[in-house]
Amino acid sequence: MATGGRRGAAAAPLLVAVAALLLGAAGHLYPGEVCPGMDIRNNLTRLHELENCSVIEGHLQILLMFKTRPEDFRDLSFPKLIMITDYLLLFRVYGLESLKDLFPNLTVIRGSRLFFNYALVIFEMVHLKELGLYNLMNITRGSVRIEKNNELCYLATIDWSRILDSVEDNYIVLNKDDNEECGDICPGTAKGKTNCPATVINGQFVERCWTHSHCQKVCPTICKSHGCTAEGLCCHSECLGNCSQPDDPTKCVACRNFYLDGRCVETCPPPYYHFQDWRCVNFSFCQDLHHKCKNSRRQGCHQYVIHNNKCIPECPSGYTMNSSNLLCTPCLGPCPKVCHLLEGEKTIDSVTSAQELRGCTVINGSLIINIRGGNNLAAELEANLGLIEEISGYLKIRRSYALVSLSFFRKLRLIRGETLEIGNYSFYALDNQNLRQLWDWSKHNLTITQGKLFFHYNPKLCLSEIHKMEEVSGTKGRQERNDIALKTNGDQASCENELLKFSYIRTSFDKI
């Protein structure tokens, strides 16, 4: 039985969820670079991206490699990797027998973001014989899940209580170790020597080791999670996991709180800001991140802002960003909400898709409305799209047979046209069989910064309504002859009103 693990408890099935942008060198404390989270699957090609990484700022997932063999891993080693800020997950990587050479110096898994409450997941690794993470000293947050690894031993010899604050939620089941077939031998045991430290858990006094050649490092209890030197002297209180010299914040392997210019500090002093819960960055760093993602459509890219001495992905609820200094300031009234469309555009074809934009005031991208039916549609669209004030790209209304009016965009005031449909149009209306009105132009103002209007096959939309939009939106004169079809717009509506004058002759039985 794995020490510190839980057996036999019912657990939810383990679901495996399925960018080499360097964020800056980590400095003297770390020998390499800070790398983003990685999802490495199918083959070993991307694994080489770990070569210079000291910190993975995010998670590391290595999974679904069915053609790899043990010899493929023999020359692979990433000794610079010290810390993973989120979680480490391995799933069905064939041929991998140990992690001792792959990650010989991995010391800390912070667990800032977890995989279903777990910071370390080893699942269905069919050839893994031992973990071998002999320098792993601290899992700051989260638990361990090690399950269905039929060859995995050296679990009962690990004292997880020396690595985690609590072992109650560890789930370590259905491994070879369960069948008591392992016969784990710690260093020196074969020669009758006791080389590794022994600890007591559940009444068992057991030597602690990761492999037959690597003991588990056990520091004096007084050192807590700070770690200790090879001689057993406690590291500085700002260290986490390990250090090369005692009581020196510049000799830590990793930091308990924050890293700044080669030393570990309790908090980031001005003019620095907390970033990702582990390091200090200056304003320029946060500003660069903001600008890199301002026009990016890459998933996970955030326009970072500053709030409460932190550089964070977005302002919290009730705050909006001051564009001059990136500071989050309290909103006066309802907060603006910028919604970034991942692929640059979004099609609204149902109430469900409209709900995804609920509360958005600025759309960074283009909207395509293609709704053919739905219950209580006008009210639903207004509830979900009615706060949109600005669209950076274009607005396209296409084959939306259920629409009679666009009044559900009740606050839309600006279409920038930074991206144009077919390279020309910022407003595009095609084949809307029941569209009769755009907006009530006596109450609604709309500016279209650039781009043209396109109207074709809107049989109940009168040309007068379209011409009014040209005047109000500032697009009059931009359109070419064929942009607004004269014969297919309003051709099934009563669009022309003329005053009919009647004269009559009164007659009676005795007068003409």
Score class of each variant (00 low, 15 high):
His28Asn: 14
Glu33Trp: 07
Met38Phe: 02
Leu47Met: 06
His48Pro: 11
His48Cys: 05
Leu50Pro: 01
Leu50Thr: 03
Glu51His: 15
Cys53Pro: 00
Glu57Leu: 06
His59Ser: 09
Leu63Met: 02
Leu63Phe: 04
Lys67Ser: 04
Arg69Cys: 10
Pro70Leu: 10
Phe73Arg: 04
Asp75Tyr: 14
Leu81Phe: 01
Leu81Ser: 00
Met83Ile: 10
Tyr87Ala: 01
Tyr94Asp: 05
Gly95Gln: 15
Glu97Ser: 06
Leu99Trp: 00
Leu99Gln: 00
Leu102Met: 14
Leu106His: 01
Val108Cys: 04
Gly111Trp: 00
Ser112Lys: 09
Phe116Pro: 01
Leu120Arg: 01
His127Leu: 15
His127Arg: 04
Leu128Lys: 00
Leu131Ser: 02
Leu136Thr: 02
Ile139Phe: 03
Ser143Asn: 12
Ser143Cys: 10
Ala156Tyr: 03
Ile158Ala: 08
Ile158Gly: 02
Asp159Glu: 13
Arg162Thr: 06
Ile163Gly: 01
Ile163Val: 11
Leu164Gln: 07
Leu164Cys: 15
Glu168Ala: 14
Asp169Ile: 08
Leu174Phe: 10
Asn175Gly: 10
Lys176Glu: 13
Asp177Tyr: 12
Asp178Phe: 11
Asp178Tyr: 11
Asn179Met: 09
Glu180Met: 08
Gly183Lys: 15
Ile185Ser: 04
Cys186Ser: 03
Gly188His: 09
Ala190Asp: 09
Lys191Asp: 15
Cys196Ser: 14
Pro197Lys: 05
Val200Gln: 09
Phe205Val: 12
Glu207Tyr: 06
Glu207His: 13
Thr211Met: 02
His212Gln: 13
Cys215Ile: 04
Gln216Ser: 04
Lys217Cys: 02
Val218Ala: 10
Ile222Thr: 04
His226Met: 14
Cys228Asn: 04
Thr229Pro: 07
Ala230Ile: 14
Leu233Ser: 12
Leu233Asn: 14
Cys234Met: 02
Cys234Gln: 01
Cys235Lys: 03
His236Tyr: 03
Glu238Phe: 04
Leu240Tyr: 11
Gly241Asn: 06
Cys243Pro: 00
Asp247Val: 06
Pro249Thr: 09
Pro249Glu: 08
Thr250Met: 09
Val253Pro: 03
Ala254Lys: 01
Arg256Asp: 09
Asp261Arg: 07
Cys264Tyr: 00
Pro269Gly: 03
Pro270Trp: 11
Pro271Val: 07
Tyr272Lys: 08
Phe275Gln: 01
Phe275Gly: 02
Phe275Pro: 01
Trp278His: 09
Arg279Trp: 06
Cys280Gln: 01
Asn282Met: 11
Phe283Glu: 12
Gln287Pro: 07
Asp288Val: 09
His290Ser: 11
Ser296Phe: 13
Ser296Leu: 06
Arg297Trp: 10
Arg297His: 15
Gly300Pro: 12
Gly300Val: 10
Cys301Phe: 04
Tyr304Met: 07
Ile306Val: 05
His307Thr: 04
Asn308Arg: 08
Asn308Leu: 08
Asn309Leu: 05
Lys310Ser: 05
Lys310Asn: 08
Lys310Pro: 02
Ile312Ser: 07
Pro313Ser: 09
Cys315Arg: 00
Pro316Val: 05
Pro316Ala: 04
Gly318Leu: 11
Tyr319Gln: 15
Ser323Cys: 06
Ser323Ile: 13
Ser323Phe: 14
Ser324Gln: 15
Asn325Cys: 14
Leu327Gly: 06
Cys328Lys: 00
Leu332Trp: 08
Pro334Met: 12
